[in-house]
Simulated scan of single mutants.
Amino acid sequence: MVAGEASGDLLAGLLLGGLRQRWPDLQAVGIGGPQMALQGFDAWWPSDKLAVRGYVEVLRHYREIVGIRRQLRDRLLQGERPAAFIGVDAPDFNLGLEADLKAAGVRTAHFVCPSIWAWRPERIEKIRASADHVLCIFPFEPALLAEHGIAATYVGHPLANVIPLEPDRAAARRALGLDEGDTVLAILPGSRASEVQYLARRFFDAAALLRRDRPGLRFVVPAMPALRERIDAIAREAGMADALQIVNGQSHTVLAACDLTLIASGTATLEAALFKRPMVIAYNMNWLSWQIMRRQRLQPWVGLPNILCQDFVVPELLQEQAEAPALAQAVRDWLDAPSRMQAVHARFTDLHHSLRRDTARLATDAIETLLEG
């Protein structure tokens, strides 16, 4: 198995739980993170080696990443071959590896259909050449893949089962030392170093503006432990070190506790939607990477909640729009419209129901069928 970042590690950890129930003596090896390690995964490389986003950023790490993929491929093919290879997200890394393994006779599955419905539709041919089976987390994807002769199964989104339909806000606030009457803004600047580089200062500057006219507003920042030092430094640079409650990890506790969130586009936005939280989605990246990605978009939305709802349910401020004054105003717009916040809660509850399935069992069933050939 290969999972390339924090969200992939979480998905892979959930899947491994189901696989181990079916096959208690399972040996799982490859590239992974702490959630996979809890399931007995043997990580030959840590998943954060692959946690790079954006064309320019990838180029800076290209030699190392390609070297890891080559070493992993050779190790899998020259030693005892695995019964199956499961690539968890990270399509730019995994699909090429899967194609080599599939050509050598190893059964391959890809968990999380690449978002060909949002951008880079040309990847459909690469998926067909790489994956014997695709495990889809969104209900419309299997039919789309079937049109191109790719076997796929809708397994639901694992997070829809992990996150309760009605999160316990009071318990989460107690865990974080927050009062029930506090108004809480969760700030999530991303799980990658490049995201923190481009977004954290913008988010903290927006928080500083909000602090001036809403002095009672509380700010909580769940930080990836590996990025904590950098986030602390940016908070000091923004003059907000004393106003931000920065905690190690605990993103789910923070999302359960908050009233709304200022959040980087990515898997975390879907987590926020499953917690039924209003949000302001933002993203900023290297200019050249943005120009390339912008031309490959197929839909007007970038945030997963908006894509799944096929509507601008929550605001998106991208690239040059993601400036502190605009971010702060978008947060104020939510706080000044309680009825709008209630409406989005109902919309996200419907979304949650549509994504709830017994993911571990359905995915394990599909993998067992693949192994039986």
Rank of each mutant, 00 (worst) to 15 (best):
A193Y: 04
A193C: 00
S194F: 02
E195L: 00
E195D: 08
E195P: 09
V196A: 11
V196M: 08
V196D: 11
V196K: 06
Q197N: 11
Y198Q: 08
Y198I: 00
L199T: 00
L199S: 07
A200V: 00
R201Q: 14
R202Y: 03
F203M: 11
F203D: 00
F204D: 03
D205Q: 15
D205G: 05
A207P: 13
R214C: 03
P215A: 02
P215Y: 06
G216A: 08
R218S: 07
R218N: 09
R218P: 09
R218A: 06
V220R: 07
V220P: 14
V221I: 03
P222L: 02
A223Q: 10
P225G: 06
P225K: 06
A226E: 14
A226C: 01
L227C: 12
E229C: 08
R230Q: 15
R230F: 06
I231A: 10
I231R: 09
D232N: 13
A233L: 13
A233M: 11
I234P: 15
I234S: 14
I234C: 13
I234T: 15
A235C: 10
A235E: 07
A235Y: 07
E237L: 05
E237S: 14
A238F: 06
A238E: 12
A238Y: 08
A238H: 10
A241N: 13
A241W: 13
D242E: 14
D242T: 07
A243I: 01
L244C: 10
L244T: 05
L244M: 14
Q245L: 12
I246R: 12
V247W: 12
V247S: 07
N248V: 01
G249M: 02
S251M: 12
H252N: 10
T253I: 03
T253F: 02
V254L: 03
A256F: 06
A256S: 14
A257V: 01
D259V: 03
L260I: 00
T261Y: 05
L262H: 10
A264Q: 05
S265P: 13
G266C: 05
A268R: 10
T269L: 07
T269C: 13
L270E: 15
A272H: 05
F275A: 11
